[in-house]
């Protein structure tokens, strides 16, 4: 079954005709070619597919594309402005908070929503906020430091 949907992605309205069984992650990656959103586990454990849906961090692998109809999505591709990196993106580079980079878009999407709600968090609050994002390369200290640095910049 194919279903017509319209939703906003990074500020642009998109009209699509998609299989009802396709996840939002598949729609973003395959139909819209926004491949910054990654599939890690595909079952909501790793957070590599974290996106912003109506102002909340969610796992795009556990949402149907058709469920996005009428809603607003922001992906990692919509985070920088006019070629200028978001403070979180800059902080991840400066703190070397990534190695292979696969988990990074998800971490930045989680951290961005979190800092918007809690601009000066404690280290423990940051660690709780990113508990749904897994990194298998660096450990988490540099990621936490990058989020702390971005919080100070903002």
């Amino acid at each position: 079954m194919k279903v017509p949907v319209r939703f906003s992605v990074n500020g642009d309205d998109r009209d699509l005709y998609i299989g009802a069984h396709k996840t939002l992650m598949e729609v973003l990656r395959d139909d819209l070619e926004l491949t910054g959103t990654k599939e890690g586990c595909g079952n909501g454990n790793c957070g590599a597919c974290t996106i912003n849906l109506d102002g909340k961090a969610v796992n795009a692998c556990l949402i149907l594309g058709v469920e996005a109809d009428g809603h607003e999505v922001q992906t990692i591709e919509g985070v920088s402005e006019d070629g200028t990196l978001h403070p979180l993106q800059q902080a991840f580079i400066e703190e070397s908070a990534l190695q292979c980079g696969f988990c990074t878009p998800g971490f930045i999407m989680s951290a961005k929503v979190f800092l918007e709600q809690n601009p000066s968090p404690s280290e423990q609050e940051i660690r709780t906020a990113i508990a749904g994002n897994l990194c298998r390369c660096t450990g988490y200290d540099k990621i936490v430091r990058a989020i702390q640095a971005a919080a100070k910049l903002a």
């Binding site: 909501g44 957070g47 909340k56 961090a57 796992n59 556990l62 949402i63 989680s110 749904g132 994002n133």
Partner: peptide, 9 residues
Amino acid sequence: VGSTQIQNR
């Protein structure tokens, strides 16, 4: 319940 992402959904 799960992570922030799971609780949000």
